[in-house]
Write a protein that binds this DNA or RNA. Structure first.
Lengths: 232, 232
DNA sequence: CGTAACGTTGAATCTAATCAACCCTAGTGG
DNA sequence: CCACTAGGGTTGATTAGATTCAACGTTACG
């Protein structure tokens, strides 16, 4: 990617919202570039946070391993998402592992550069607080959900959240444009593969969702899901 | 509080780490001051985020109401914690309600001032990312916990986390220096008053924790709790 | 075309919620 | 000063939602 191409990417990144074109160019010039093939990881949980990243193209799944070896899916990330920035600024090891679920192109800045750019362009730092704040909120919402709701409602809420974040309107409903396995969904909703399977099977019966193995999941009747997610 | 007194407070606030004394003074000068009596709220979930706050003295409990009327305790906050800053920068309504569980003194800055100060002193913005990032991590850890662990382990982890954040070493163990009801604990660990009660009763039997109604909870044998929290 | 990863489905089990009743304790007001 | 009450806590019995265990089906892909 040459510098103008990078600028085109960075223009749409929330972290750099409000920067002038010449400022974006300065930021772009400092970046390294990294490619990741499907199945590779960007870094591993526990590693030293030497770089912060912005995802240009592709998708990542952010996984956290628990001390006893289980896995929790923290979130899916798409183009424009920042990765690892918090760990860099906190000077702590990465707390999770981002796995490429599609081929990715990623821009990277060293830890020192990251801090320096934010100091030079405070707008970036303000944007970063807002972005990270958004994640706090999302996590608080998920926490509330898991704490108070039955499994069926959590699965419904999770699908709706993903649809809202990355969904595409197509004929026949809203499509979630990347492959999510039943197991992914289980690890996102704090339940088991089995329960997810049963639940989705029932919803397919009723025509609320559709999508065969491997292909993308489509929410055919979002309003029905909302009903399930909101019922007392 | 006069300006030098405020500076003394701000010196110990992570959000303002690394600022020079004259910079701190500038920040202190822009602050409003607000007192809160035990039982009052600083603001209410859903209100417009017009100010961001830093807790000078006292303790707050941050509550989130779920759509169906249940309550989740997000966290306890003590001196030096920032409150509401994220909502201000994201220009969204406050997502939770901070309730004073002790008398509090709080410093406040208007939304505009907050952004302006962070732009003028980028270090504040960088600190803010780090602080908020810390919350992201804590929430991710709690999410993992709730997602994968049995209730007993979650209660143990929660007590240990609180002890780590605000605990005081006293003879006979580590004391958590504010009143936590069984219900608070239930709302923090995604369980019911009843289960918490049973669990703590058992632990008191075994001499792992102690503390009668009203008085502070003391962890007499932290290592036993750690064992419970970590057992496969 | 074989095989491994993923998914489905049924049955048994169990954890923790719910339901229910009762007990303390700290205040309050007569 | 003491009875009363409200809020919080304890404890037992019952129930249900979801996990676990188990076995088998399906699909993608090398």
């Amino acid at each position: 990617m040459d510098i103008p191409a990078r600028v085109t990417v960075l223009e749409r990144v929330p972290l750099f919202k409000g920067l002038r074109p010449d400022e974006l160019e300065a930021v772009a010039r400092e970046a390294h570039e990294r490619k990741l093939e499907k199945g590779e990881v960007l870094f591993r949980q526990g590693e030293d946070a030497a770089h912060s990243y912005v995802l240009g193209w592709g998708r990542l799944r952010l996984d956290q391993a628990t001390p006893d070896g289980q896995n929790v899916v923290l979130r899916f990330m798409g183009p424009g998402d920042m990765v690892g920035t918090v760990a860099v600024l906190r000077r702590i090891p990465f707390p999770a592992t981002p796995l490429a679920i599609e081929d990715c192109v990623i821009l990277a800045w060293s830890a020192g550069r990251t801090a320096e750019l934010m100091t030079r362009f405070p707008a970036i730092a303000l944007n970063a607080v807002a972005v990270v704040g958004g994640r706090v909120e999302e996590l608080q919402a998920r926490l509330s959900e898991i704490a108070t709701q039955r499994v069926e409602r959590r699965i419904a809420s999770t699908l709706l959240r993903m649809a809202r974040q990355s969904g595409r309107r197509i004929e026949g409903g809203v499509e979630i444009p990347f492959a999510i396995s039943r197991n992914d969904l289980a690890e996102m909703t704090a339940t088991t593969l089995h329960t997810v399977s049963r639940t989705l099977a029932a919803w397919e019966q009723e025509g609320i969702v559709s999508g065969k193995r491997g292909s993308y999941l489509t929410i055919a009747q979002p309003h029905r899901l909302v009903e399930i997610a909101e019922q007392a």
